[in-house]
Design a protein around this nucleic acid. Structure first.
Lengths: 393, 393
DNA sequence: GTGAAAGCGCTAACAA
DNA sequence: TTGTTAGCGCTTTCAC
């Protein structure tokens, strides 16, 4: 049994295909009675518009391409979920492409999606530099929004978490629970998350301790690195009490000797690895050392103790991306928008104040430091005015 | 600048659109020289076929719908990755829909995907019973493969892990490392994973201990439940040494008293919750109690100790699903295929042999020897010899 | 082996 | 407000 077409509906309702099209697409005003008749006939025949025909004619597929570096990155599923929901709410379907962190695969996927005539693209670039060419080329053809990561300057609109604010929330919190000897375990490189979080730490940590900004260890965004960093600190770092030698920058170089009382990790994976290795070494978390993460991936709740972290405003990020894609196509080269949304701090046991040394059996008490909604909007608006924003180098 | 069309290529290469189409689609034999000329012209113009037009004409979109209950379920990202790769290798694009565990949303997404003329559907049903209607209706219109979960009998082809084999691997392994007093922490309900894993435990555990098949606790597939189950066992269960009262079925009812020396969990989330609560109670894992999971989600590696678990053969599952979708459409009502693929056991520290136990398999003795803080490696390679199917990775 | 022509189902001009 | 007409870019008969 073949599907009903517009013509079938037209015949059944006794009017022309054009009228039926107008009723069903809501493009033009149509007489109430006719409209009713058309709708009845359509329902009766179980009419389903053929998107392929519609796409061919109207040059719009109602489809958005979503290009990810690796869906197995633990932060992305949440984001993908929010994005698909936001886009489906707009009546758009989502074509998914996973690039396996390979910029060449990414370029191919982008080309394929373009050939499939997606109306727009949402891209989390696989590589800060090597993704740029393909992304820029695509952005010239369809509306394109970069998410989470950047890929050079002035390529396209972008939406991401405000890393600086997030890091500031962490540092404020650590100060409030009396931590001073903080140390940053981050990721090397110039990608936005790595660089911005590191810079935010370096500029904010001085408020806790003059030596803190120099206590920085850089690796990558993995649990493996979190473990290694703790080993580095606890093995080659100066012992508690004895004044340490002046360390090189890039190593953890406590100005007054002693081990850190808080590890600020650039993401949750690092934090999980660090936490794990601390526990294996018999270090009490949070009793002796607090540990914080970034992103609030599902695992951050599941570890024991749960990890204090910065929750990315996933729904808002998705909504903002969807909004950018809804905007009418550009007349000429309007400057790109860079939208940064303020995150929340989620306080869990890994950063509890020292006296309540942590084996509270209740793991689920996430205390969300609720961020003022107005402030967040202001943040957005403010950034909107700054049309062009340079990536931190 | 508008895209080049077939006509453009035809003009540039001095032949008809039909010929160009045949060259580019490879549908019919074409003179070698003409073909070369066409290809050159196409490349020169940067020709990209318009999929919408192609779809309209050939009634095939080259697109597959992937319908998920919740992409945030930690097992799915890996599966989605494998599926998209397998499908992209076939030149198909993937339309993604996330249903938020809601069968009604699922039905809508399926209808939408059908309206968008997907060539086929891949569905992980949100609900064993309530997904059935929409799935069956869709299966009547396009090739449809169920993955991971079922939804009633005889609805469509399906591909899933062989839960029975997986559970048998776990029980064999526990026997080999000298565990006898095993207890199952599973999920209630009739959904395939829940029911099959439970049944496999019940029929396989007797080999370890006559009372084992009755030691079954049922909740859901969450870490929360894993924690609760441990509380139930350690609080209301009989103390070590004292003979316990005959317990009701559904509770853990050790026939000879005493706490379990191994917790067989129906998935990794339960295992993570159980492990966590055991540690909070000061129970040594694996010293006193072994813990095993199922699925091998990323978190299973990240916990300390790493969790011994059953790794789903994700690439093979994806390949098999893609293969089913490639098959030509059915003539009449051929019976549906149900494909079950054997998984591997991944031995990690959570089930290491106790040092005092004298007679364990060689593998596990090696394991024990390596079990210091730095031994974090999966023992997959060795176990592969025991497992019934080798991974093609 | 190649070309001409006829649509796939729909929307957008242009008339009425 | 409604109908008529012309395609969107492609594949696929059918001729040659």
């Amino acid at each position: 049994m073949t599907d009903a077409t517009l013509r079938d509906v037209a015949r059944a309702s006794g009017c022309s295909v054009a009228t039926v099209s107008r009723v069903l697409a809501g493009t033009r005003p149509v007489g109430a009675e006719t409209a009713a008749r058309v709708r009845a006939a359509a329902a009766q025949l179980g009419y389903r518009p053929n998107h392929a025909a519609r796409a061919l004619r109207s040059r719009a597929t109602g489809t958005v391409g979503l290009v990810l570096p690796q869906i197995t990155n633990p932060f992305y599923p949440t984001l993908v979920r929010a994005l698909t929901h936001a886009l489906h709410a707009d009546g758009r379907a989502v074509l998914l492409a996973d690039c396996d962190d390979d910029p060449e695969a990414e370029a191919e996927h982008i080309a394929d999606l373009l050939a499939r005539r997606v109306d727009a693209l949402l891209v989390i670039p696989a590589h800060e530099r090597r993704s740029r060419e393909a992304v820029a080329a695509a952005a010239a053809r369809v509306p394109l929004v970069l998410m989470d990561r950047g890929c050079g300057t002035g390529v396209a609109d972008s939406v991401a978490v405000d890393n600086a604010t997030g890091m500031a929330l962490v540092l404020d919190h650590l100060a409030a629970v009396g931590r001073r000897r903080v140390c940053f375990i981050g990721a090397a490189g110039t990608a936005s998350a790595a660089a911005e979080r590191r810079l935010a730490y370096e500029s904010g940590a001085a408020a806790l301790d003059p030596g803190a900004p120099d206590r920085v260890l850089l690796g990558d965004f993995s649990a493996e690195w979190g473990r290694a960093a703790v080993d580095e600190l606890w093995e080659s770092g100066p012992r508690d009490g004895e004044p340490g030698p002046e360390g090189e920058p890039g190593r953890c170089a406590p100005s007054g000797g002693g081990l850190p009382d808080a590890l600020v990790c650039a993401n949750d994976l690092i934090a999980i690895g660090a936490l794990q290795r601390l526990q294996q070494r018999g270090v009490d978390v949070p009793g002796q050392v607090a540990v914080t993460g970034f992103d609030d991936i599902p695992m951050a709740t599941l570890s024991a103790p749960g990890i204090t972290t910065v929750r990315q405003p996933v729904s808002e990020l998705a909504a903002e991306a969807a909004r950018l894609l809804r905007r009418p196509p550009q007349d000429g080269t309007r400057p790109h928008r860079t939208i940064r949304l303020a995150p929340d701090l989620v306080v869990r046991e890994s950063s509890a104040a020292r006296r309540q040394s942590g084996h509270s059996a209740r793991n689920e008490q996430d205390m969300t430091a609720q961020q003022d909604v107005t402030a967040q909007q202001d943040m957005t608006a403010q950034q909107d005015l700054t049309a062009k924003v340079e990536e931190a180098q």
